[in-house]
Simulated scan of single mutants.
Amino acid sequence: MERAMRLLLIEDDRKMAEAVAAALAESGHQVDIVGDGAEGFDRALNGRYDVVVIDRMLPGMDGLAVVAGLRDRDIKVPVLLLTALGSVSDRVAGLRGGADDYLVKPFSMVELEARVEALGRRSSGLSDALLTVGTLALDRMQRRVWRGDKLVHLQPREYQLLEMLMQNAPAVVTRMMLLEQIWRFRFDPGTNLVESHVSRLRTKIDRGGDPPLIHTIKGEGYAVRAG
């Protein structure tokens, strides 16, 4: 189960803000909503938040300006930028401006929750050198993987894929998150790239009669879970 986080949502569309807040609250998180960029900037400066979710287009102060202002003041809180601007240049501008991740509208609430929770884990220091799920272990220092007492030999992409799934376990990692983080795609290429790598990874991790650990969550993505 994910740890409960305190989140700040800076979004001027009230219906959108309420829907996002409701989805995040359903997962146990506390969400403060602000509808103005300048007020949101002040709250982010003076409040202790685990993650800040910021809309790109805001009254009072633009979303990119809010992010830049936080970074200028050495506020390192993770920021997820919401944007209706889907071009590569717009996304790059957001990331270079100090955002840690971005999500293009319209988006699924499942993906929003997954990205927020991934940012929260990253900021909390939950990035241990040894990752374990059930009988599966991944040593990030040596880049080696075991299932029980058997060493599992993985190709570089397979290792990256498993590492990302285990780092986020037991939460779901969406297909788009994998494309972005592992293959550096800023768009969906419309191929079975992810599916084929997950399939090959399964043959190596879940073989030998052991209970399966790599799960496909229909309509959402993938997760490593024991039991």
Rank of each mutant, 00 (worst) to 15 (best):
S87I: 00
D210G: 10
G208E: 00
S27K: 15
E18H: 10
G148C: 08
V198S: 04
D206C: 02
A21D: 07
N192R: 13
I54M: 03
R96E: 14
L81T: 01
S127N: 15
I217W: 05
V173I: 11
T216C: 03
R96V: 03
L82H: 01
L201I: 04
R6H: 15
G148D: 12
M166C: 08
Q155I: 00
Y159R: 02
I54A: 08
G227P: 04
V133S: 12
A137I: 05
P212Q: 06
M57L: 10
A118T: 11
D139R: 10
E26S: 12
K105L: 03
I33Y: 08
L9E: 06
H153E: 13
A137N: 10
M57A: 07
R147I: 03
I217F: 05
V198C: 01
L154N: 04
V198L: 07
L85W: 01
L213D: 01
A114Y: 01
V53N: 04
T132S: 14
F185N: 04
V66H: 07
W183C: 04
R200G: 05
A129E: 15
G40E: 07
S89Y: 01
D90T: 05
A38Y: 06
N46A: 13
V53K: 05
L119H: 12
T203G: 01
L165N: 06
L82K: 03
E163V: 02
R157H: 06
V104I: 12
A25C: 11
L45W: 09
D74S: 14
E39L: 13
A226W: 13
G69Y: 10
D101H: 11
G227S: 12
D210V: 05
I75F: 09
A23M: 11
I75R: 15
E11C: 07
